[in-house]
């Protein structure tokens, strides 16, 4: 329990550090948002008035504290571009990106664990070599190119879905899920390849450990050694990897949303970046970082729940 508390504290501090860095970057580097908003022809007086109105003349840390407080309260500020608050803008998009990420995660787990086990068990067989080669190729395919190929093959040639025909989840949830399958697949593909490779090499190296030899010496067959002894040890690094993958996929969705014309968080972020809509950019980045930190924290907790060695360190 003490460990959980410490972990939460560390996560909170990391998030605080991230928010501070983001605030620092976006207030110091881009120059004066007031003059940016009014354009080059504004009089100095007008700029000064707007600065006062936007609260830009207060000390840096006061502004940071203010921003942080309203952020915690769920007030992310107002978009420069759209006539709505950032909160409203994002609330609509989050379910889309989240669905895509979770769907890819599901694909990764369902496909890569059996494949990893199979290849490790039949190390050196033709199937293993074939999967190894395929893995190498798939890992070299950028997610958006996978998306383009999938559009070409499943969309244009096989007509299994309409390219660009996004269905809103509010209108038709089933249709929405069906449309999200191929984008999720294109995000998941390279990650599946990496997970299979990592799991396979982890299993094989654990299989060579002394304890695996002990397991054989008690009369276990290969399957028994693999499933009862080796798998749990080999899964530990995979867990960390999957945690990092989930965060990677959220980022990867930015590109894939573009390929499949999906109006998710990534689209919002891209538009905001090219229009210099800083409140939106800041909100999206801090939220994404929050998700990333949360997921990694959960993975750490899960890890220590599984690995007895860490549990001991946590309870002196």
């Amino acid at each position: 329990m003490k460990y959980v508390g410490k972990k939460l504290l560390t996560m909170l501090l990391t998030l605080l550090l991230v928010s501070f860095l983001v605030f620092l970057c976006f207030t110091v580097i881009p120059g004066d948002p007031a003059s940016a908003r009014l354009g080059t022809e504004a009089t100095p007086e007008a700029v000064e008035m707007l600065r006062e109105e936007m609260g830009l003349n207060r000390p840096f840390f006061v502004r940071y504290g203010d921003w942080l407080l309203s952020f915690v309260r769920g007030d992310f500020g107002e978009s420069y571009d759209y006539e709505m608050t950032v909160g409203e803008l994002l609330a609509d998009k989050i379910p889309i990106t989240l669905t895509m990420s979770l769907m890819s995660m599901l694909l990764i787990i369902v496909l890569s664990i059996p494949l990893g086990l199979y290849t490790a068990r039949h190390e050196g067989s033709w199937a293993d070599r074939g999967i190894y080669a395929l893995n190498q190729v798939i890992m070299a395919v950028p997610a958006f190119f996978a998306g383009i190929l999938i559009t070409l093959f499943f969309g244009i040639l096989l007509k299994m879905f309409t390219p660009g025909g996004y269905v809103s989840y509010r209108r038709d949830f089933g249709g929405f899920l069906a449309y999200m399958f191929f984008p999720s697949l294109s995000i998941a593909l390279p990650k599946i390849a990496m997970t299979v490779k990592l799991l396979r090499s982890g299993l094989i190296s654990e299989k060579k450990q002394d304890y695996a030899r002990t397991a054989y010496s008690r009369g276990n067959h290969t399957g028994g050694v693999l499933y009862k002894h080796v798998l749990k040890n080999a899964m530990l690094p995979i867990l960390t990897f999957l945690g990092m993958t989930l965060t990677d996929m959220i980022a990867g969705s930015i590109v894939v949303e573009q390929v499949f014309s999906i109006p998710g968080i990534g689209r919002v972020l891209l538009t905001a970046i090219s229009h210099r809509d800083y409140p939106v950019v800041m909100a999206v980045i801090v939220c994404l970082a929050g998700v990333v930190i949360l997921v990694n924290g959960l993975v750490d907790l899960l890890y220590q729940w599984i690995d007895p060695r860490i549990r001991l360190e946590a309870q002196p």
Binding site: Q209, D210, Y211, R213, T214, A215, S217, R218, H229, K232, N233, I306, D307, P308, R309
Partner: peptide
């Protein structure tokens, strides 16, 4: 039955 040299690594840690 067999016992090995390295008792530190010959048992399954988890």
């Amino acid at each position: 039955s067999i016992i090995f040299q390295e008792p530190m690594t010959s048992l399954n840690p988890v």
